[in-house]
Computed example of a mutant assay.
Amino acid sequence: MVRNAPTTLALGACVLLASACKTDDPPDEDTYTFAEDDPASYTRVDRIGMPAIGTAVIINKEDYNQADPAADAAGQFVDQITMSVEGLHAALDDDLSGLGLTPCVAADCVNQAAPLVVPDTIKLDLNSPTGFPNGRALTDPVIDVTLAVVLLDLTIDGQDATSLVGALNPTANDLPFETAFPYLAPAHTL
């Protein structure tokens, strides 16, 4: 997320969270207006190419959010990531074993996850099939796959990056996605 002025931030929030900003009236084609400012005029306030990395394993979030992904590749945040992954394993390895899964050694998990999460960007190869980790569809089990790569020993037969799909998170939304932009289902109302 980036910002340069409150109106742009509010507009960006409305576009990103269009279902929350949506009225009961069907949108017309001119509902959404996108800023065309020079990218240099914006200030990065959050990065989330890979969900849960900046949120769950980075300790100094302000430094991380201000850093470029090149800093990830240079190893600037490896110590924080390693410490957090060790903490996750200390808290969750017994639960994973109880589910019949084999956790990896924290240092091995960091090495195993590095190609997926470093740098913290959305990767897209137009010559490869789409779907996480090559891009991200709304229906992709991104968190389950990321957690499996960070927590499980993927060298064990029968255990792979999809071993947690459905074990931790729902496998589908309670409402179907829309077929037109913004694609998200309408927000629940109380």
Rank of each mutant, 00 (worst) to 15 (best):
Q112Y: 01
P170A: 12
A71G: 01
N65R: 02
G98E: 14
I59Q: 12
D72K: 08
P176F: 05
L99G: 02
K61W: 08
P69V: 02
D153N: 14
T139R: 07
A106F: 10
F132W: 14
C104R: 02
D174M: 09
C104S: 04
Q76F: 07
P103G: 01
G131T: 00
P141S: 04
P176T: 08
C104T: 07
A161M: 14
I156W: 03
P186D: 09
G87R: 11
A74H: 10
A90T: 08
P182D: 15
D93H: 03
N111C: 07
N127R: 12
P182F: 14
I58E: 00
F132H: 03
A167Y: 01
D144T: 06
C104Q: 04
P69T: 04
N60R: 13
G87E: 15
L138K: 05
Q80D: 10
P133S: 02
L147T: 02
D63W: 04
M83D: 15
G166P: 12
A74D: 12
A90M: 07
T179Q: 06
A167T: 11
A67L: 03
D93T: 06
I59Y: 11
Y64H: 04
D174E: 06
T55R: 14
Q112E: 03
L126W: 04
T130G: 09
V78P: 01
V118Y: 04
F181L: 08
A107I: 06
D95W: 12
V145P: 05
G100A: 13
K123R: 14
F177H: 02
E86L: 07
A161H: 06
V149F: 04
I143M: 12
L147M: 14
V105P: 00
Q76A: 14
A161L: 15
D108C: 08
I58K: 01
D108F: 13
L88H: 05
T55G: 13
G135S: 12
L168I: 15
H188M: 01
A167F: 03
D144F: 00
P170H: 04
G166N: 07
R136S: 11
N65V: 02
D140Y: 10
P69Y: 10
N65E: 01
Q66R: 15
T162K: 09
A113K: 02
A70M: 09
A187F: 09
K123V: 10
T155D: 13
D125F: 06
A148G: 15
N173T: 05
H89M: 11
A52S: 09
A185Y: 09
V110P: 01
P133H: 08
L175Q: 13
E178T: 00
P186K: 08
V145F: 07
T102Q: 13
P119D: 02
A74S: 09
E86T: 09
A73Q: 14
L99R: 14
D68R: 01
D94K: 15
F177D: 01
F177Y: 09
P176Y: 10
G87C: 04
A114E: 06
L96P: 00
I58Q: 00
E86V: 14
C104G: 07
L126Q: 09
T82C: 04
M83T: 14
A56G: 06
A167W: 03
D63T: 13
A185I: 03
M83G: 04
D153M: 11
L92D: 07
N60G: 07
P133M: 04
I53E: 02
